[in-house]
Design a protein around this nucleic acid. Structure first.
Lengths: 230, 230
DNA sequence: CGTGAGGTTGATCGCTTTCAACGGAGGTGG
DNA sequence: CCACCTCCGTTGAAAGCGATCAACCTCACG
């Protein structure tokens, strides 16, 4: 559900869900979404939760005047739509062609009732979410634009990098608008700080969507220590 | 755990916890804290969770250079320290004389294993947390300083107001520093926007810590519609 | 090729921060 | 009892960062 979730946790979550789906019911189905298609809107009845099988979705909230805040991105293996209320508190849409596994909330809760250890695991997923959310608070509330962008790319880099690797190349699944709405910035500011990171050699951008990070540790240093050197 | 939690939910949460504590164990104890005393630090072993019995605490994260982000406030009836990891991901300290109920995490998990419906309730608490967290994201990422302060006071007002009442007077449990660190602002900006709200008649401040809100609905209008009138 | 969406870069504006001075409340000691 | 001090909050002036406005670029697609 959130981009902060570390790679190991993904696997952990994924394993759990596979477990549940095998365990619980047979009315579950796969939903396919194209780029920019909506999985559900804020206010829709929250009858199901979803597991991302392939692709990326984002959760977002809108203000009345159209301002948007992206709450988090959900990658393969992440859960979306977990909510106590009977209505979704946020919208969710695909950033690229995406497949999700639709899981009836009723069945899920039934399973939890019947099999305590499932509830325990689900609780752990929810708690992972809560802790994943906290970096994002610090980023939004207390970091400069430069640090925000560096933090964001560092997190993505660690997600995409192989175990133990310190360099990585990947394709950005989201646009500059999405990044801006996630970090509480404008697209121009995001773009300028991409350039700034490029000038300093922390990243390379052979194409708009291709990110090359030669040294993740180096990039990470920019994420908390305002680029004060000129 | 979070100031966004609505009053009804508090009661709901509180009822649950009372239930658990009766159900589970006998090694639970009450911890008393004075103003500014720490319940636990970021990185401490997370062996217990806490229920606030009286007073207010805040959860916060620090950056290396001392910048602080308050993640949320926890009032009477709220839970603190829920976490999947074995270390606390944030610090927690009292804002005023406070009593908390210390609940061994081990006992809690044992209870959940033995009594599935407890896990279900705990899960609902965690999910309430997640949804409570989302307003805060919008506030931090997409609102102006004026809207942030108005949003904050509106939430507090609804928490302290009697059921159905549209006006309320209460004492702020937190300092301007705390508010600033919660909203991602400086104390000066918080102070200026308190004054701005006062000039517009949305609030009154007979003393520093006394907030008078004659019309909560009116105050709320400022929380999403930038005070564009002069 | 023409067109449009997405991205970058430059110039300027304005909100929030920073720096600084002041004021009130509470506590302590002479 | 009052002078003094410190903490917290407010207010003013100036600086700086990110937003806004605007022009241009790149690429995919018809």
């Amino acid at each position: 559900m959130n981009v902060q979730t570390a790679a190991q946790q993904d696997t952990f979550v994924f394993d759990n869900i596979v477990d549940w789906t095998k365990a619980s019911a047979d009315d579950q189905k796969v939903v396919s979404l194209n780029k920019n298609e909506t999985l559900f809107y804020e206010g829709d009845a929250a009858e199901s939760i979803y597991e991302v099988l392939e692709g990326v979705v984002c959760n977002y909230r809108l203000l009345l005047d159209g301002r948007r805040q992206i709450l988090g991105f959900a990658f393969k293996g992440d859960l979306v739509g977990l909510s106590r209320a009977d209505k979704h508190g946020f919208g969710c849409e695909a950033l690229c062609p995406t497949q999700v596994h639709k899981i009836s909330k009723y069945n899920l809760l039934e399973t939890v009732r019947q099999r305590p250890e499932m509830g325990h695991k689900l609780l752990e997923v929810a708690m992972s979410e809560l802790s994943a959310v906290q970096d994002h608070f610090v980023i939004l509330g207390r970091k400069s634009a430069f640090e925000k962008v560096a933090s964001f790319l560092t997190t993505l880099a660690r997600r995409y990098a192989n175990e133990g690797a310190n360099s990585v190349t990947f394709l950005l699944p989201m646009t500059r608008v999405d990044i801006a709405d996630y970090l509480g910035l404008t697209i121009e500011t995001v773009s300028r700080n991409f350039s700034k990171l490029k000038i300093r050699g922390a990243i390379d951008l052979p194409q708009f969507t291709t990110i090359v990070i030669p040294d993740i540790d180096c990039l990470e240093e920019f994420s908390e220590s305002e680029g004060d050197a000129s």
